[in-house]
Design a protein around this nucleic acid. Structure first.
Lengths: 129, 129
DNA sequence: CGCATATCTGTATAGCTATGCAGATATCGA
DNA sequence: TCGATATCTGCATAGCTATACAGATATGCG
């Protein structure tokens, strides 16, 4: 809390910053709305059920709802709820074929994100063992 | 739910799969434990406060707790709680310097993950406008 | 040693959300 | 049109968790 920087507002002692310049600069660089959307994206991927669905779609390419529910071992209702969230966010896309709806990953970025994350996990795993 | 595949277990009608082979194959490919760790990682990044902290660290490189709390505009207590979770998960690292503790991103993968995600968001944003 | 500062931690709670049942909707086949 | 099938949706709730206050701990200074 000690003010050490030359530009520190010595007349306003309530503000407690160590590196006032850095705080100001970084505050300008980060966009609150963007950070919020970043969190929303990760939150979407941060549910075990949805993560397993995405993982399965990453491997399978395309699957209908009932096969997804069988693969991930969840009721179809739960799968449908999860898929709706993912679809609304643009993470997966659906293709209707008669009575069935096939889902797949929508975006190359998401695929890369999953790949990179798995790589990260496997890397840590290897180092730990 | 209609069984159309040749390997379908016709004597066990409770199982309702469209593409039995695909379900079996993908089930073998996805690792439940790995999917769980994947979700845990994303869950960690999926909180607005933690996302903003990581975003700030991505830009700043290294910051002490009080500067982080100022930049992200949260009480130091909240920053400390968030940083502990991130540190425990190996996402950030800390360096003690006297009374102060400086935090930075620990892993290149995480940095790439953040970069890629921001890229994804900005890409979508551009397409939408 | 005693005080100030920087960070951490215990705890309680308000708010969110994943989940699944029951029922609605949509499509196909006859 | 009628029944069967595949998916979707409304709703209630149990469980989780982010948050912040108060107090504990750790470090530096003199």
């Amino acid at each position: 809390m000690q003010i050490s920087n030359s530009t520190a507002p010595l007349d306003e002692c309530e503000i407690k910053q160590v590196d006032v310049d850095k705080v100001a600069v970084v505050r300008g660089l980060i966009d609150a709305a963007e950070a919020s959307r970043l969190a929303d994206l990760f939150k979407l991927l941060g549910d075990p059920t949805r993560a397993r669905i995405l993982y399965a779609l990453l491997e399978a390419g395309e699957m209908c709802v009932c096969d997804i529910s069988e693969t991930v071992e969840i009721p179809e209702s739960t799968a449908s709820h999860a898929l709706r969230l993912l679809r609304t966010a643009g993470v997966v896309r659906n293709r209707r074929d008669g009575r069935m709806v096939h889902y797949s990953l929508d975006d190359a970025h998401v695929r890369m994100l999953l790949d990179l994350s798995l790589q990260h996990l496997r890397h840590d795993q290897d180092c730990a063992s």
